[in-house]
Design a protein around this nucleic acid. Structure first.
Lengths: 201, 201
DNA sequence: CCAAAAGTGTTGCGTATACACCCATGG
DNA sequence: CCATGGGTGTATACGCAACACTTTTGG
Protein backbone atom coordinates (compact mmCIF):
# COMPACT_ATOMS: atom_id res chain seq x y z
CA UNK A 1 0.00 0.00 0.00
CA UNK A 2 1.28 3.46 -0.79
CA UNK A 3 1.04 6.69 1.11
CA UNK A 4 0.52 10.07 -0.45
CA UNK A 5 2.17 12.79 1.59
CA UNK A 6 1.05 16.38 1.38
CA UNK A 7 2.30 19.53 3.05
CA UNK A 8 -0.35 22.08 4.04
CA UNK A 9 0.24 25.49 5.55
CA UNK A 10 -1.93 27.70 7.66
CA UNK A 11 -0.72 31.21 6.93
CA UNK A 12 -1.67 33.77 9.56
CA UNK A 13 -1.48 37.50 9.40
CA UNK A 14 -2.94 40.34 11.40
CA UNK A 15 -4.53 42.67 8.88
CA UNK A 16 -6.56 45.75 9.84
CA UNK A 17 -6.87 44.64 13.40
CA UNK A 18 -8.04 41.12 12.63
CA UNK A 19 -6.37 37.76 12.71
CA UNK A 20 -6.71 36.35 9.22
CA UNK A 21 -5.85 33.14 7.39
CA UNK A 22 -4.87 32.68 3.78
CA UNK A 23 -7.61 30.58 2.19
CA UNK A 24 -7.75 30.89 -1.59
CA UNK A 25 -10.90 29.08 -2.75
CA UNK A 26 -11.57 28.34 0.91
CA UNK A 27 -8.72 25.85 1.10
CA UNK A 28 -5.37 25.88 2.79
CA UNK A 29 -2.48 26.05 0.41
CA UNK A 30 -0.76 22.74 -0.08
CA UNK A 31 1.74 20.81 -2.08
CA UNK A 32 2.15 17.15 -2.84
CA UNK A 33 5.50 15.76 -1.78
CA UNK A 34 6.91 14.86 -5.14
CA UNK A 35 10.52 15.88 -5.06
CA UNK A 36 13.50 15.38 -2.87
CA UNK A 37 13.25 18.18 -0.37
CA UNK A 38 12.64 18.21 3.35
CA UNK A 39 9.12 18.88 4.53
CA UNK A 40 10.28 22.18 6.00
CA UNK A 41 11.69 23.20 2.67
CA UNK A 42 8.49 22.28 0.88
CA UNK A 43 6.49 24.33 3.36
CA UNK A 44 8.74 27.31 2.76
CA UNK A 45 8.29 26.96 -0.98
CA UNK A 46 4.55 26.96 -0.60
CA UNK A 47 4.75 30.14 1.43
CA UNK A 48 7.09 31.90 -0.94
CA UNK A 49 4.42 31.68 -3.57
CA UNK A 50 2.28 33.94 -1.41
CA UNK A 51 4.77 36.15 0.33
CA UNK A 52 6.63 36.59 -2.91
CA UNK A 53 10.02 36.84 -1.32
CA UNK A 54 12.47 34.78 0.63
CA UNK A 55 11.37 33.91 4.09
CA UNK A 56 13.62 35.37 6.68
CA UNK A 57 11.20 37.33 8.75
CA UNK A 58 8.26 35.03 9.25
CA UNK A 59 7.92 32.26 11.74
CA UNK A 60 7.33 28.71 10.55
CA UNK A 61 6.35 25.81 12.78
CA UNK A 62 5.16 22.31 12.19
CA UNK A 63 1.67 21.99 13.59
CA UNK A 64 0.60 18.38 13.34
CA UNK A 65 0.47 15.41 11.01
CA UNK A 66 -2.96 14.10 10.12
CA UNK A 67 -3.74 10.84 8.40
CA UNK A 68 -6.67 9.66 6.34
CA UNK A 69 -6.64 5.91 5.87
CA UNK A 70 -8.55 4.63 2.85
CA UNK A 71 -8.96 1.14 1.53
CA UNK A 72 -6.01 1.09 -0.83
CA UNK A 73 -4.31 4.35 -0.08
CA UNK A 74 -3.18 6.36 2.85
CA UNK A 75 -3.16 10.14 2.86
CA UNK A 76 -0.78 11.89 5.20
CA UNK A 77 -0.99 15.66 5.69
CA UNK A 78 1.91 17.35 7.40
CA UNK A 79 0.54 20.72 8.44
CA UNK A 80 2.60 23.82 9.18
CA UNK A 81 1.62 27.26 10.30
CA UNK A 82 3.32 30.47 9.39
CA UNK A 83 3.25 34.01 10.71
CA UNK A 84 3.43 36.65 8.04
CA UNK A 85 3.68 40.36 8.62
CA UNK A 86 0.91 42.22 6.81
CA UNK A 87 3.47 44.45 5.14
CA UNK A 88 4.97 41.52 3.24
CA UNK A 89 1.78 40.35 1.62
CA UNK A 90 1.61 40.61 -2.14
CA UNK A 91 -1.41 42.73 -3.05
CA UNK A 92 -2.92 40.04 -5.31
CA UNK A 93 -3.11 37.67 -2.40
CA UNK A 94 -4.63 40.07 0.09
CA UNK A 95 -8.19 39.28 -0.90
CA UNK A 96 -7.69 35.60 -0.10
CA UNK A 97 -7.14 36.34 3.56
CA UNK A 98 -10.23 35.62 5.63
CA UNK A 99 -10.70 36.84 9.21
CA UNK A 100 -10.85 33.86 11.50
CA UNK A 101 -13.97 35.33 13.07
CA UNK A 102 -15.75 34.69 9.77
CA UNK A 103 -14.77 31.06 9.42
CA UNK A 104 -17.46 28.50 9.90
CA UNK A 105 -17.60 24.76 10.16
CA UNK A 106 -18.34 24.78 6.47
CA UNK A 107 -14.69 25.37 5.68
CA UNK A 108 -13.22 21.91 5.10
CA UNK A 109 -10.14 22.52 7.18
CA UNK A 110 -11.86 24.35 9.99
CA UNK A 111 -10.65 21.89 12.59
CA UNK A 112 -7.05 22.28 11.55
CA UNK A 113 -7.31 26.05 11.59
CA UNK A 114 -8.90 26.09 15.03
CA UNK A 115 -6.11 23.98 16.36
CA UNK A 116 -3.54 26.25 14.74
CA UNK A 117 -5.12 29.26 16.45
CA UNK A 118 -4.83 27.55 19.82
CA UNK A 119 -1.20 26.83 19.21
CA UNK A 120 -0.59 30.37 18.00
CA UNK A 121 -2.14 31.79 21.17
CA UNK A 122 0.08 29.68 23.30
CA UNK A 123 3.11 30.56 21.21
CA UNK A 124 2.85 34.30 21.54
CA UNK A 125 2.40 34.04 25.29
CA UNK A 126 5.53 31.96 25.77
CA UNK A 127 7.89 33.15 23.06
CA UNK A 128 8.88 36.29 21.22
CA UNK A 129 7.58 35.22 17.81
CA UNK A 130 5.17 38.14 17.53
CA UNK A 131 8.02 39.94 15.91
CA UNK A 132 7.14 38.08 12.73
CA UNK A 133 3.75 39.75 12.56
CA UNK A 134 5.09 43.29 12.78
CA UNK A 135 7.25 45.40 10.58
CA UNK A 136 10.71 46.16 11.82
CA UNK A 137 9.66 49.29 13.70
CA UNK A 138 6.39 49.71 15.54
CA UNK A 139 4.77 51.52 18.42
CA UNK A 140 3.91 49.87 21.70
CA UNK A 141 0.23 50.39 20.93
CA UNK A 142 0.62 48.48 17.69
CA UNK A 143 2.30 45.65 19.53
CA UNK A 144 -0.37 45.65 22.18
CA UNK A 145 -3.09 45.51 19.55
CA UNK A 146 -1.52 42.41 17.99
CA UNK A 147 -1.60 40.65 21.33
CA UNK A 148 -5.17 41.74 21.96
CA UNK A 149 -6.23 40.53 18.54
CA UNK A 150 -4.70 37.11 18.86
CA UNK A 151 -5.55 36.50 22.48
CA UNK A 152 -9.03 37.86 21.98
CA UNK A 153 -9.04 40.05 25.06
CA UNK A 154 -8.18 43.58 26.07
CA UNK A 155 -5.03 44.33 27.99
CA UNK A 156 -4.27 47.15 30.36
CA UNK A 157 -2.01 49.68 28.68
CA UNK A 158 0.20 50.48 31.66
CA UNK A 159 0.68 46.89 32.73
CA UNK A 160 1.36 45.82 29.17
CA UNK A 161 4.03 48.45 28.64
CA UNK A 162 5.75 47.77 31.91
CA UNK A 163 5.76 44.03 31.23
CA UNK A 164 7.07 44.25 27.70
CA UNK A 165 9.72 46.82 28.49
CA UNK A 166 11.08 45.03 31.53
CA UNK A 167 11.47 41.87 29.45
CA UNK A 168 14.13 43.75 27.54
CA UNK A 169 13.22 42.34 24.15
CA UNK A 170 12.75 45.76 22.64
CA UNK A 171 15.04 48.58 21.75
CA UNK A 172 13.79 52.15 21.18
CA UNK A 173 14.62 52.82 17.57
CA UNK A 174 14.90 56.55 18.17
CA UNK A 175 12.23 57.45 15.66
CA UNK A 176 8.67 58.50 16.26
CA UNK A 177 5.51 57.71 14.45
CA UNK A 178 3.93 60.95 13.48
CA UNK A 179 0.89 62.07 11.52
CA UNK A 180 -1.53 60.39 13.89
CA UNK A 181 -3.65 63.40 14.69
CA UNK A 182 -2.37 62.81 18.21
CA UNK A 183 0.81 62.85 20.20
CA UNK A 184 3.61 61.09 18.22
CA UNK A 185 4.48 57.63 19.48
CA UNK A 186 7.96 56.31 20.11
CA UNK A 187 9.07 53.56 17.77
CA UNK A 188 10.60 50.33 18.98
CA UNK A 189 12.23 47.32 17.34
CA UNK A 190 12.96 43.82 18.56
CA UNK A 191 16.58 43.40 19.59
CA UNK A 192 16.59 39.91 18.12
CA UNK A 193 14.29 38.57 15.46
CA UNK A 194 14.97 34.94 16.23
CA UNK A 195 12.56 32.68 18.06
CA UNK A 196 13.25 32.45 21.77
CA UNK A 197 11.38 31.25 24.81
CA UNK A 198 10.09 34.16 26.86
CA UNK A 199 7.17 34.11 29.24
CA UNK A 200 5.27 37.19 28.15
CA UNK A 201 2.01 36.63 30.04
CA UNK B 1 8.55 9.88 -6.50
CA UNK B 2 7.27 7.85 -3.64
CA UNK B 3 7.35 8.45 0.07
CA UNK B 4 7.83 5.79 2.69
CA UNK B 5 6.04 6.63 5.88
CA UNK B 6 7.08 5.14 9.19
CA UNK B 7 5.70 5.51 12.68
CA UNK B 8 8.22 5.57 15.51
CA UNK B 9 7.49 5.70 19.20
CA UNK B 10 9.54 6.91 22.12
CA UNK B 11 8.25 4.90 25.07
CA UNK B 12 9.05 6.44 28.44
CA UNK B 13 8.76 4.93 31.84
CA UNK B 14 10.07 5.80 35.29
CA UNK B 15 11.68 2.65 36.61
CA UNK B 16 13.56 2.46 39.89
CA UNK B 17 13.79 6.19 40.18
CA UNK B 18 15.08 6.78 36.67
CA UNK B 19 13.52 8.03 33.49
CA UNK B 20 14.02 5.29 30.93
CA UNK B 21 13.30 4.75 27.25
CA UNK B 22 12.47 1.53 25.47
CA UNK B 23 15.32 0.88 23.05
CA UNK B 24 15.59 -2.75 21.95
CA UNK B 25 18.82 -3.08 19.97
CA UNK B 26 19.38 0.61 20.63
CA UNK B 27 16.58 1.63 18.27
CA UNK B 28 13.18 3.12 18.79
CA UNK B 29 10.37 0.77 17.97
CA UNK B 30 8.76 1.49 14.65
CA UNK B 31 6.37 0.29 12.01
CA UNK B 32 6.10 0.91 8.32
CA UNK B 33 2.75 2.33 7.29
CA UNK B 34 1.49 -0.50 5.17
CA UNK B 35 -2.13 -0.90 5.99
CA UNK B 36 -5.21 1.24 6.23
CA UNK B 37 -5.09 2.56 9.77
CA UNK B 38 -4.63 6.03 11.16
CA UNK B 39 -1.17 6.96 12.35
CA UNK B 40 -2.46 7.10 15.91
CA UNK B 41 -3.79 3.58 15.57
CA UNK B 42 -0.50 2.35 14.20
CA UNK B 43 1.37 3.93 17.09
CA UNK B 44 -0.96 2.23 19.56
CA UNK B 45 -0.36 -1.11 17.87
CA UNK B 46 3.37 -0.67 18.16
CA UNK B 47 3.01 0.04 21.85
CA UNK B 48 0.72 -2.87 22.52
CA UNK B 49 3.49 -5.16 21.47
CA UNK B 50 5.48 -3.95 24.46
CA UNK B 51 2.86 -3.18 27.04
CA UNK B 52 1.11 -6.39 26.18
CA UNK B 53 -2.37 -5.11 26.85
CA UNK B 54 -4.83 -2.59 25.54
CA UNK B 55 -3.78 0.97 26.07
CA UNK B 56 -6.15 2.80 28.29
CA UNK B 57 -3.85 4.05 30.96
CA UNK B 58 -0.90 5.45 29.11
CA UNK B 59 -0.58 8.80 27.45
CA UNK B 60 0.14 9.00 23.75
CA UNK B 61 1.12 12.16 21.91
CA UNK B 62 2.42 12.92 18.49
CA UNK B 63 5.87 14.43 18.85
CA UNK B 64 7.04 15.57 15.46
CA UNK B 65 7.33 14.49 11.85
CA UNK B 66 10.82 14.23 10.42
CA UNK B 67 11.74 13.86 6.79
CA UNK B 68 14.77 12.44 5.03
CA UNK B 69 14.85 13.39 1.37
CA UNK B 70 16.89 11.09 -0.85
CA UNK B 71 17.42 11.17 -4.55
CA UNK B 72 14.56 8.92 -5.57
CA UNK B 73 12.78 8.36 -2.32
CA UNK B 74 11.48 10.31 0.57
CA UNK B 75 11.37 8.92 4.07
CA UNK B 76 8.87 10.40 6.48
CA UNK B 77 8.97 9.48 10.16
CA UNK B 78 5.97 10.38 12.26
CA UNK B 79 7.22 10.13 15.82
CA UNK B 80 5.04 9.65 18.90
CA UNK B 81 5.90 9.44 22.54
CA UNK B 82 4.15 7.36 25.11
CA UNK B 83 4.09 7.30 28.90
CA UNK B 84 3.92 3.85 30.37
CA UNK B 85 3.56 3.05 34.03
CA UNK B 86 6.33 0.74 35.21
CA UNK B 87 3.77 -1.69 36.58
CA UNK B 88 2.44 -2.42 33.10
CA UNK B 89 5.70 -3.45 31.55
CA UNK B 90 6.00 -7.02 30.44
CA UNK B 91 8.97 -8.58 32.20
CA UNK B 92 10.63 -9.67 28.93
CA UNK B 93 10.79 -6.09 27.79
CA UNK B 94 12.17 -4.62 31.00
CA UNK B 95 15.78 -5.14 30.02
CA UNK B 96 15.34 -3.07 26.87
CA UNK B 97 14.64 0.06 28.87
CA UNK B 98 17.68 2.31 29.08
CA UNK B 99 17.99 5.20 31.55
CA UNK B 100 18.13 8.44 29.60
CA UNK B 101 21.15 9.43 31.66
CA UNK B 102 23.06 6.64 29.94
CA UNK B 103 22.21 7.61 26.40
CA UNK B 104 24.94 9.06 24.29
CA UNK B 105 25.18 10.67 20.92
CA UNK B 106 26.06 7.24 19.60
CA UNK B 107 22.41 6.20 19.73
CA UNK B 108 21.06 6.87 16.25
CA UNK B 109 17.90 8.52 17.44
CA UNK B 110 19.47 10.51 20.25
CA UNK B 111 18.23 13.81 18.86
CA UNK B 112 14.66 12.62 18.71
CA UNK B 113 14.80 11.27 22.24
CA UNK B 114 16.28 14.50 23.58
CA UNK B 115 13.50 16.45 22.00
CA UNK B 116 10.94 14.04 23.42
CA UNK B 117 12.37 14.57 26.90
CA UNK B 118 12.02 18.32 26.53
CA UNK B 119 8.42 17.94 25.49
CA UNK B 120 7.76 15.51 28.31
CA UNK B 121 9.14 17.98 30.84
CA UNK B 122 6.90 20.69 29.56
CA UNK B 123 3.94 18.36 29.48
CA UNK B 124 4.08 17.30 33.09
CA UNK B 125 4.41 20.89 34.23
CA UNK B 126 1.34 22.03 32.34
CA UNK B 127 -0.96 19.02 32.36
CA UNK B 128 -2.00 16.14 34.58
CA UNK B 129 -0.53 13.39 32.41
CA UNK B 130 1.81 12.10 35.13
CA UNK B 131 -1.05 9.87 36.10
CA UNK B 132 0.00 7.62 33.25
CA UNK B 133 3.36 6.93 34.89
CA UNK B 134 1.92 5.82 38.22
CA UNK B 135 -0.23 2.96 39.31
CA UNK B 136 -3.77 3.78 40.33
CA UNK B 137 -2.86 4.42 43.97
CA UNK B 138 0.33 6.05 45.13
CA UNK B 139 1.78 8.14 47.92
CA UNK B 140 2.58 11.82 47.62
CA UNK B 141 6.26 11.01 47.97
CA UNK B 142 6.06 8.65 45.02
CA UNK B 143 4.38 11.34 42.98
CA UNK B 144 6.96 13.89 44.03
CA UNK B 145 9.77 11.56 43.06
CA UNK B 146 8.34 11.17 39.56
CA UNK B 147 8.35 14.92 39.13
CA UNK B 148 11.87 15.21 40.49
CA UNK B 149 13.08 12.46 38.19
CA UNK B 150 11.63 13.96 35.05
CA UNK B 151 12.39 17.58 35.83
CA UNK B 152 15.84 16.68 37.05
CA UNK B 153 15.69 18.77 40.20
CA UNK B 154 14.68 18.42 43.81
CA UNK B 155 11.44 19.88 45.05
CA UNK B 156 10.49 21.09 48.51
CA UNK B 157 8.21 18.57 50.16
CA UNK B 158 5.88 21.02 51.86
CA UNK B 159 5.49 23.29 48.87
CA UNK B 160 4.95 20.31 46.59
CA UNK B 161 2.23 18.81 48.75
CA UNK B 162 0.41 22.07 49.20
CA UNK B 163 0.52 22.78 45.49
CA UNK B 164 -0.66 19.36 44.37
CA UNK B 165 -3.40 19.10 46.94
CA UNK B 166 -4.83 22.56 46.31
CA UNK B 167 -5.04 21.74 42.61
CA UNK B 168 -7.69 19.24 43.55
CA UNK B 169 -6.61 16.59 41.06
CA UNK B 170 -6.18 13.95 43.74
CA UNK B 171 -8.53 12.05 45.96
CA UNK B 172 -7.34 10.26 49.11
CA UNK B 173 -8.05 6.62 48.44
CA UNK B 174 -8.45 5.84 52.11
CA UNK B 175 -5.70 3.24 52.17
CA UNK B 176 -2.21 3.51 53.52
CA UNK B 177 1.05 2.19 52.26
CA UNK B 178 2.56 0.17 55.02
CA UNK B 179 5.65 -1.98 55.52
CA UNK B 180 8.05 0.87 54.87
CA UNK B 181 10.03 0.59 58.05
CA UNK B 182 8.66 4.05 58.67
CA UNK B 183 5.41 5.84 59.26
CA UNK B 184 2.75 4.56 56.82
CA UNK B 185 1.89 6.97 54.01
CA UNK B 186 -1.60 7.91 52.87
CA UNK B 187 -2.52 6.68 49.42
CA UNK B 188 -4.02 8.93 46.79
CA UNK B 189 -5.50 8.45 43.33
CA UNK B 190 -6.18 10.83 40.47
CA UNK B 191 -9.82 11.86 40.29
CA UNK B 192 -9.67 11.77 36.50
CA UNK B 193 -7.25 9.84 34.39
CA UNK B 194 -7.84 11.85 31.25
CA UNK B 195 -5.42 14.44 29.92
CA UNK B 196 -6.25 17.97 31.02
CA UNK B 197 -4.45 21.28 31.06
CA UNK B 198 -3.33 22.16 34.58
CA UNK B 199 -0.51 24.45 35.53
CA UNK B 200 1.34 22.35 38.07
CA UNK B 201 4.52 24.41 38.39
C1' DC C 1 15.35 3.16 71.33
C1' DC C 2 16.93 4.13 66.86
C1' DA C 3 16.54 4.82 61.92
C1' DA C 4 13.57 6.13 58.30
C1' DA C 5 10.21 8.45 55.94
C1' DA C 6 5.59 10.98 56.71
C1' DG C 7 3.50 14.89 57.78
C1' DT C 8 2.72 19.83 58.80
C1' DG C 9 2.75 26.37 58.81
C1' DT C 10 4.60 30.77 58.56
C1' DT C 11 6.97 34.58 56.58
C1' DG C 12 9.11 37.41 53.03
C1' DC C 13 9.37 38.70 48.39
C1' DG C 14 8.34 39.51 43.90
C1' DT C 15 5.00 39.56 40.27
C1' DA C 16 0.25 40.52 38.53
C1' DT C 17 -3.69 43.33 38.70
C1' DA C 18 -6.62 47.21 39.11
C1' DC C 19 -7.10 51.81 38.35
C1' DA C 20 -7.20 57.65 36.25
C1' DC C 21 -5.12 61.50 34.76
C1' DC C 22 -2.04 64.69 32.00
C1' DC C 23 0.49 65.41 27.47
C1' DA C 24 1.52 66.38 22.60
C1' DT C 25 -0.17 66.78 18.23
C1' DG C 26 -3.34 67.52 13.93
C1' DG C 27 -7.11 69.61 12.26
C1' DC D 1 -9.75 74.58 21.25
C1' DC D 2 -11.01 70.04 20.77
C1' DA D 3 -10.52 65.24 19.65
C1' DT D 4 -7.27 61.58 19.47
C1' DG D 5 -4.22 58.50 21.08
C1' DG D 6 0.47 58.59 23.89
C1' DG D 7 2.40 58.23 28.04
C1' DT D 8 2.97 57.58 33.15
C1' DG D 9 2.74 55.54 39.03
C1' DT D 10 0.77 53.44 43.07
C1' DA D 11 -1.59 50.35 46.19
C1' DT D 12 -3.28 45.71 46.83
C1' DA D 13 -3.63 40.81 46.32
C1' DC D 14 -1.71 36.60 45.29
C1' DG D 15 1.35 32.99 44.40
C1' DC D 16 6.12 31.15 45.07
C1' DA D 17 10.18 30.05 47.67
C1' DA D 18 12.65 29.27 51.75
C1' DC D 19 12.84 27.06 55.86
C1' DA D 20 12.82 22.82 60.64
C1' DC D 21 10.63 20.06 63.62
C1' DT D 22 7.31 16.37 65.29
C1' DT D 23 5.04 11.86 64.34
C1' DT D 24 4.58 7.07 63.37
C1' DT D 25 6.19 2.94 62.26
C1' DG D 26 9.59 -1.41 61.66
C1' DG D 27 13.36 -3.62 63.34
Amino acid sequence: MSAAVRVKTVIFSVISGKLQVYLPANRLVQDIVSHAASLNKIAKNVIERIAGSVINEGYLEQLYTFSHPFEHMMEVDVVYYYLLSAAEINKDHLKSFIPVSELSGKIAEYGIISYAIQRLRWKIEYTNVVYSLLSREFTLSELQKIYETILGKRLDKRNFRRKILTLGLLRPSGGRKTGLKARPAKLYAFRKRQPAMVKVF
